[in-house]
Amino acid sequence: MTAYILQRLIQSVLVLLAVSIVVFLAVYGIGDPIELLVPPQVSAAERAAMIRRLGLDLPVWQQYLSFLGNALKGDLGRSFVHGVPAAGLILARLPATFELVLLAMSGAALIGVPLGLLAGLNPESRPSRAIMAGTILGFSLPSFWKGMMLVLLFSVALGWLPTAGRGETVSLFGIQTSLLTLDGIRHLILPALNLAIPNMALMVRLVAAGTTEAMTQDYVKYARAKGVRRKRIVGRHVLRNILIPVVTVAGMEFGSLVAFSTITETVFAWPGMGKLLIDSIYHLDRPVVVAYVMLATLLFVAVNFLVDVLYAALDPRVKLTGEMA
């Protein structure tokens, strides 16, 4: 087990290293950030001074090594555009994204799990089939189109909810949150709904599939034969058994939403991390993009690692060896 964890750790570090190199080169390959930052009328001397200050005059491998050296000391560099540390810039956006994803995922679970149970218990009934067809629709709507339609319906046509932006925030333990003000929550609803719909569909499908399968298992059959009430079977046995995969998937989705809710944040002008990523890419703000993707990869690697270890702990059939069977 320890050997396995060590091995995975080394592999993860290698992945991080590879990600940093590829992203570094990728942004380098798109274009020269100086062309976007410095207006063309600036004198050659001033431009050269700026290039030197940002270290862009060095060969790319030297730039990368100095980045790596600083990163090991915990310094991911300064944003070209904002002039402040990249990590701080990203982390300052974390609360906004986090509360959005939190609301979206809990909403998805609160609605998705009961619907999934309903559909899974009577898979051939009319409502169940409607629910399952609905999940297909939920998967099929492209995020940007759905977001705009939500705005058109709830903000423009009905005038119930604000169109974009974060609204009023209050400070809680030094972190800005909009979950505690009415205005903030009103601003949260539409983007959270936009994120929640496909996840709701995912939850319904997971729970429905799990329930249908569980109902055919021997333990359920025995319980039924013993005359245990249906409610109790579902509540005590079925639900408990299907929750493990649901929680796992929800956890992984949570991670990927925190890292890449880019489209929703763009459509709703939500000042979160995804919006920052896309703005930074468009401005060739390399320190921010590199720091961002590295942090995101760290998140994924950690989540995958935890999932594998958890599975091993929960399911004795999974062996954790170097071969990862």
Partner: peptide, 18 residues
């Protein structure tokens, strides 16, 4: 000053009184 980069939501925000 509130940044709203997309033109559509910006106008919709005016219409909605934001």
């Amino acid at each position: 000053f509130v940044p709203v980069p997309n033109a559509g939501p910006r106008l919709a925000g005016l219409l909605a009184g934001d």
